[in-house]
């Protein structure tokens, strides 16, 4: 291990304390309000948030659609499942998709994505060890290769944020980190109940999860806001560097 190469924690913190002109460890006085909130306080805030999200739902979805479009998403509002599947059909047909990967979230149980892809003759892999029911090997390298070779990656969304036009994904069982990243096209399915107004909303809900799960909110979280971009050469915008060049958002409402 590397302990012998480090500055011991207490020594490091003591040097920081010394720089601050203090001798003993002490929490901030007065305490930092956000870190003093109890789970009950957060739950009160959550109730207010959920009550707010109950109202003006259509306007919120429309605002999401408009902001997301400005951030580079191809947006389709599809209150009707047939419309959503029709849009998916037209996207994969136009792109000439041969291979697709998708994650395994609840939204795929309400929307018959697989049957559309199957009817179009697209080879589809569900990137989830549980679903493939196979051993560790299958779940590791082989699934990864499927994602690298795929023409499109299809995922759900844990949240969508009206303020920023972002989709938020929380990789976990059934949702690889790479489905929305490795293929050149990403398509996200957004359920109306997962749409929130602001970044603050997302972080409040994540904090609740953190405290409810005894100090764990999962290993990873990604805000995705449009396609992969760079402007590193002469500040000229290029779309699609290491991530998807084309992104689609279907709002199911």
């Amino acid at each position: 291990m590397v302990e012998h190469l480090e500055t011991p924690r207490e020594e490091f913190l003591a040097s920081v304390r010394q720089a601050l002109g203090r001798s003993a460890a002490s929490p901030p006085v007065p305490p930092y309000p956000r870190l003093e909130e109890s789970l009950a306080d957060l739950e009160t805030l959550e109730r207010d948030l959920l009550a707010r999200l109950e109202t003006g739902r259509d306007a919120r979805l429309e605002a999401l659609a408009q902001t997301a479009a400005r951030r580079g998403w191809n947006v389709k509002r599809a209150p009707d499942p047939e419309e959503a599947l029709g849009y998916l059909d037209s996207v994969v047909t136009q792109l000439g998709v041969k291979r697709a990967v998708r994650s395994a979230e609840a939204v795929f149980q309400q929307l018959a994505v697989d049957s559309i892809l199957q009817r179009l003759g697209i080879e589809t892999t569900i990137i989830a060890r549980d679903e493939t029911g196979s051993d560790e090997n299958r779940s590791g390298a082989a699934l990864r290769q499927e994602m690298i070779d795929a023409d499109i990656g299809i995922t759900g969304a844990d949240y969508a944020v009206t303020e920023t036009g972002s989709v938020v994904v929380l990789p976990r069982a059934g949702l690889s980190r790479l489905v929305s990243l490795a293929p050149p096209v990403h398509l996200a399915l957004v359920r109306p109940q997962d749409v929130v107004d602001t970044l603050d909303d997302v972080f409040l809900l994540r904090r609740l999860d953190y405290y409810r799960n005894g100090g764990d909110m999962g290993s990873y979280l990604n805000f995705i806001t449009g396609p992969s971009r760079t402007a590193d050469i002469e500040q000229t915008l290029v779309v699609g560097v290491h991530g998807p060049k084309e992104v689609h958002m279907i709002i199911l409402g």
Partner: peptide, 24 residues
């Protein structure tokens, strides 16, 4: 930095992959 309302990605890492995670 670049005039973007938000960058394409904001990634938040809390420890290594958990048991059950697909990857990481």
């Amino acid at each position: 930095a670049t005039g973007q309302p938000l960058t394409s990605y904001v990634s938040m890492v809390s420890g290594p992959r958990r048991d059950g995670d697909e990857d990481g």
